[in-house]
Design a protein around this nucleic acid. Structure first.
Lengths: 155, 155
DNA sequence: ACGAAATTGGACTAAAATAGTCCTAATTGA
DNA sequence: TCAATTAGGACTATTTTAGTCCAATTTCGT
């Protein structure tokens, strides 16, 4: 269904949480508590994020994690990149893989075209855009117009 | 990696093949031969495509499949829809699923925004765009400017 | 120096999604 | 009736994803 994995979703939640802590260090347990995700999962994801450079880490007691850049400067494309690997809609569109059917395959560059289009959409969305407004605002909005709730589910 | 499944890729190859046969009926074996895909796989996919209405079928001897609409009138969004289900980048963005974390989740409507953006890109691409030009054209293009080969792999 | 609180790296298992194959029934043309 | 074909679905194997846990290392505070 062209969906991102659950871990990527969690990873994004973690990044959003860190974005809300300004430059302060957060331990994995802090993040787990703040996001309501399981600690081992959070630990695993923070390691991935730290290795990618999107997040910096400080070891030892009182250590923790924090964003290395402002949320406005981190794109959704980067996040996807780090958490799921490069956007590549088919196996053919990865760099390493050489499709054996390629000389026969009628499906040409179009998936790549779609690929680029998606990537460009992703590059326009920043971590700061992913952050949900404070709850008060949402509730107020709900009271005024419950049907038009912008946070309801469904496409 | 935000990729479509292999079956969707195959399904697209099949549609492209049918698009190349004008309105003539193709049996599953014809399609398998034409696409170099395994016959059982092709049979399975054609059944899916037929059920969706994108492809029509005629049963019995000399039966087969054909597109029900012109390739120009079939969008990539529809194809994805039929082969992978509706584009829904997170579980939260499906209609049925009600995320338990929703009241707590800081990640708001942004994935849905991305969702819509991707869908709209997909709706601009038609089956007719997915078809690769005849080989002669590609080779000529290669001769003139090998580096700029639009069919090379890699993003 | 020691111990507590962290991150690091990676192994490991379990669960779920995907791919692929096959069988039986129904339909149709010759 | 027979051969060719689609229809529907069961079934298995493979691969991917999720999730947990352990042992090592680093650093702060006492």
């Amino acid at each position: 269904m062209l969906r991102i994995s659950r871990l990527t979703d969690y990873g994004t939640m973690i990044l959003v949480h860190l974005a809300g802590q300004d430059a302060g260090l957060c331990s994995a347990s802090d993040v787990a508590a703040g996001t309501h995700l399981a600690l081992p999962t959070v630990q695993k994801l923070l390691k991935t994020l730290a290795k990618s450079g999107l997040v910096g880490s400080v070891r030892g007691a009182d250590g923790g994690y924090r964003l290395t850049r402002a949320p406005e400067e981190i794109t959704a494309a980067e996040i996807l990149n780090v958490l799921e690997g490069p956007v590549a809609i088919t196996e053919c569109s990865t760099e390493t893989h050489q499709c054996e059917l390629e000389p026969l395959c009628q499906v040409g560059s179009a998936w790549q075209k779609i690929n680029r289009a998606i990537r460009s959409v992703m590059e326009d969305i920043r971590l700061s855009d992913l952050r949900r407004p404070p709850t008060e605002f949402v509730l107020k909005d709900l009271r005024q117009s419950p049907v038009a709730n912008p946070y309801s589910h469904g496409s």
